[in-house]
Structures are given as C-alpha cells and as structure tokens.
Amino acid sequence: MSQDPTTHRLVRDRLDDVIGACEAIRRYVGDARLPEDLVHDAVRMRLVEIGEAVRVLPSTVTASEPDIPWSRVSDLGERLTRRYFDTTRAVVFGTAHTDVPHLAEAARRLRATRS
C-alpha cells in the first residue's frame, strides 16, 4: 500500500505553498481586468490551500511568528471548505487585502530559516 505523499512534505515545502498562494492572491486582487466573481472564487481556493498548509505546520515553527493567528488561518481554510455558504465576500476580500500580506511576510521569514 502506498503512503500519502502529502504526509512527507517538508516544512519548507508547506511554507513555499503558503508564500505561493499569498502571491497568487495579491495578483488576483490587483488585476482590475478580472471579474470580481472570478477573483472571489480564486481567492477562496487559495485561502483553502493556505489553511491546509498551515494546519500541518508544527507549532515549534509557527511559535516564532506569534503575531499571526495560525489556528485562525487554518480554521478559515476549513470554514471555506465546510461552511462555504456562510462566508461573505467581505470576509474573503478583507482577508485578501489585510491579512494575506502579513501572512506572506511571516511565511517568508520562517522560510528563510529553513534550508
């Protein structure tokens, strides 16, 4: 029986996932040519991706960035997956504009400590 390849991904790979998703979100919300509903859907999917990546980061890693509410980041990914119907556009776009830049910076600092 083969093992799930996601269980063996390294912390640096997870941080790269977070950074990549944050960069994608920045591009999506910064491109005025894209329809708002398309941006909303794309941002939601990337927030789910971020939540999954963050969910498996060890607390020994995230503890060095205490200003980021890591459990809330993970919970948002879960909420967007399981309770998609009661997550407003304001939450999605507010998170994209306000929280994602800080998360990206924190993830970059954490990634810089990994070889």
Results as ranks from 00 to 15, higher is better:
residue 7 T to R: 13
residue 8 H to K: 15
residue 9 R to S: 14
residue 10 L to E: 15
residue 10 L to Y: 13
residue 10 L to G: 13
residue 11 V to N: 11
residue 11 V to K: 08
residue 12 R to K: 15
residue 12 R to V: 13
residue 13 D to C: 07
residue 14 R to C: 11
residue 14 R to G: 09
residue 15 L to S: 06
residue 15 L to M: 08
residue 16 D to I: 09
residue 16 D to L: 13
residue 16 D to V: 10
residue 18 V to M: 06
residue 18 V to G: 03
residue 19 I to K: 05
residue 19 I to A: 04
residue 19 I to G: 05
residue 21 A to F: 04
residue 21 A to I: 04
residue 22 C to L: 02
residue 23 E to Q: 11
residue 23 E to G: 10
residue 24 A to C: 03
residue 24 A to V: 06
residue 25 I to R: 03
residue 25 I to Y: 01
residue 25 I to P: 04
residue 26 R to H: 13
residue 27 R to P: 01
residue 27 R to H: 12
residue 28 Y to D: 11
residue 28 Y to T: 07
residue 29 V to T: 07
residue 31 D to R: 11
residue 32 A to W: 03
residue 32 A to Y: 04
residue 34 L to H: 03
residue 35 P to G: 05
residue 35 P to L: 08
residue 36 E to K: 14
residue 37 D to P: 01
residue 38 L to C: 00
residue 39 V to W: 00
residue 39 V to C: 01
residue 40 H to D: 10
residue 42 A to N: 04
residue 44 R to T: 12
residue 44 R to M: 05
residue 45 M to S: 05
residue 45 M to D: 07
residue 45 M to Y: 01
residue 46 R to V: 00
residue 46 R to F: 00
residue 47 L to H: 02
residue 48 V to G: 02
residue 49 E to L: 09
residue 50 I to Q: 01
residue 50 I to M: 03
residue 51 G to C: 06
residue 51 G to A: 06
residue 51 G to W: 04
residue 52 E to S: 08
residue 53 A to L: 03
residue 53 A to H: 01
residue 55 R to V: 00
residue 56 V to R: 07
residue 56 V to Q: 06
residue 56 V to T: 14
residue 56 V to H: 10
residue 56 V to P: 01
residue 56 V to F: 06
residue 57 L to F: 05
residue 57 L to V: 05
residue 58 P to N: 11
residue 59 S to P: 10
residue 60 T to S: 15
residue 60 T to G: 15
residue 61 V to C: 11
residue 62 T to M: 07
residue 62 T to G: 09
residue 63 A to W: 09
residue 63 A to Q: 15
residue 64 S to E: 14
residue 65 E to N: 08
residue 66 P to Q: 12
residue 66 P to V: 13
residue 66 P to I: 13
residue 66 P to L: 11
residue 67 D to E: 15
residue 67 D to K: 14
